[in-house]
Simulated assay, not measured.
Amino acid sequence: MAFSQASGAAQGDSAKGPVTNLPLPRFVSLKTGEGNVRRGPSLSHRIDWVFTHRSMPLRITAEFGHWRRVEDNEGQGGWIHYSLLSGVRTVLVEANLAVLHTRPDENAPAVAKAEAGVIARLGACQAEWCEISADGGDGWVPKAALWGVEPDELRE
């Protein structure tokens, strides 16, 4: 029994949130155009940050009641009410002028370029590539150019 548990842990079992039983950490997005980020998990705590970009990807690192501790791509964050978050997956393009390709292949035709800071909806992900869409365009981008997806994450 102990051997099987140790083996599972060695294979990278992630922690589960005590409220939702969902994996921690995990990515979500900001549902609204403005979200107050507080020092602690209640309305009585001071507002430290205000996220102002709808659909901005955020990483949940902890849960407490109706509150989620989140961080952005720069590691800034705090506690935000769960009603301000969405399960819709988005990513932030971090590479300047990231090339979007027709398929997950560096030699595939380019369909667009995305500037650093663009927020895009996340589609399928393979080992090194993810499909994203923004402003009516979509294509495949190297995963390393994005924030909001785990390096080993696969999506259909």
Results as ranks from 00 to 15, higher is better:
121 R>Q: 10
81 H>G: 06
128 E>K: 08
99 V>F: 07
155 R>F: 09
152 D>Q: 13
127 A>T: 15
40 G>Q: 06
123 G>C: 09
58 L>T: 08
13 D>C: 08
151 P>I: 09
66 H>L: 12
89 R>W: 05
33 G>D: 13
46 R>N: 10
49 W>Q: 13
24 L>Q: 04
42 S>F: 03
23 P>I: 07
103 R>E: 13
24 L>D: 03
126 Q>W: 10
9 A>R: 14
69 R>Y: 13
118 V>P: 06
141 V>Q: 04
18 P>Y: 00
118 V>Y: 07
6 A>K: 10
55 S>V: 03
152 D>I: 06
115 E>S: 14
132 I>P: 01
7 S>I: 08
117 G>N: 08
28 V>R: 11
94 E>I: 12
11 Q>V: 07
142 P>G: 04
2 A>N: 14
36 N>D: 13
125 C>I: 01
137 G>K: 12
83 S>N: 12
39 R>M: 11
14 S>M: 10
28 V>G: 03
82 Y>F: 10
58 L>A: 06
14 S>A: 11
18 P>N: 07
110 A>M: 09
94 E>V: 13
36 N>T: 04
15 A>L: 14
87 G>M: 08
151 P>R: 09
19 V>D: 06
123 G>T: 07
126 Q>R: 10
139 G>N: 01
82 Y>V: 15
9 A>C: 08
138 D>Y: 12
145 A>R: 00
128 E>S: 11
75 G>K: 11
87 G>E: 15
60 I>S: 06
93 V>Y: 04
70 V>W: 11
129 W>V: 00
38 R>S: 04
10 A>K: 10
150 E>F: 15
70 V>Y: 11
87 G>D: 15
65 G>I: 01
9 A>S: 07
113 K>T: 15
79 W>D: 01
79 W>S: 06
59 R>L: 14
43 L>W: 09
62 A>D: 15
86 S>Y: 00
107 N>M: 12
16 K>Y: 07
28 V>N: 05
23 P>G: 05
18 P>F: 01
147 W>T: 07
68 R>G: 02
144 A>G: 06
93 V>E: 03
137 G>M: 12
56 M>Q: 15
30 L>H: 03
24 L>R: 02
7 S>C: 09
94 E>D: 08
92 L>K: 13
21 N>K: 06
84 L>P: 00
23 P>C: 01
6 A>C: 07
152 D>V: 09
22 L>P: 00
119 I>T: 14
120 A>R: 00
105 D>E: 04
99 V>L: 12
93 V>C: 06
155 R>Q: 12
30 L>K: 02
70 V>I: 15
153 E>C: 06
